[in-house]
Each structure stands twice: as C-alpha cells, then as structure tokens.
C-alpha cells in the first residue's frame, strides 16, 4: 500500500503540474481539496482522468470523485479495491 501511495503522489504531482513539490511534501492524511493542498474542481477532473488512464477506473461524475479524493489514504484504498490494471 505504501508503494501505491508513493506512486499516487508522483502521478498527482505530474498530472497537476505541482512543479515545486516532491512526494514527501504531501501528507497522507492532509486534505487534497479546500484547506490542504488547495486543489480545485478542474484538478478533481484531472484526478479522475488519472484514475482512468493509470488504473482503468472510470468514475461517473465529479460528485463520486469528491468521496474518493479526500486524501492520499482514501485515494489509495479506492484504487487498491477497484483497479482493473
């Protein structure tokens, strides 16, 4: 699971162009949206794209995404359970 979390952090940094950040800057429990990393609705769509491209998971709408993208922990748990690749 730790490997997956590290991998997710790397992919998030690349997909969202967080150029100044490294995986160690992202806390597993820190909120991705709102006060934590401060991502927005477009980033949410990009994260949905990330899940589909890399793990074959297709979320139906942004509302579904909200529950998945709370933090790295929730994201990793969801990917581990639902990945098709």
């Amino acid at each position: 699971m730790e490997d997956l979390k590290q991998e997710l952090k790397e992919k998030i940094i690349a997909a969202l162009k967080l150029a100044d950040m490294t995986p160690s800057d992202i806390d597993n429990e820190a909120p991705l949206f709102g006060d934590g990393l401060g991502l927005d609705s477009i980033d949410a769509l990009e994260l949905m794209l990330l899940l589909e491209k890399n793990y074959g998971i297709r979320l139906q709408n942004p509302a579904e995404g909200k529950k998945v993208f709370v933090n790295i922990d929730t994201m990793a748990a969801y990917v581990a359970e639902n990945r098709t690749r």
Partner: peptide
C-alpha cells in the same frame, strides 16, 4: 477519450 480538461479550458 481521456482528454485533459485543463488543456481545453
């Protein structure tokens, strides 16, 4: 498919 919304926006 799988197109980036950021690029479009």
């Amino acid at each position: 498919n799988m197109l980036s919304p950021t690029d479009f926006m």
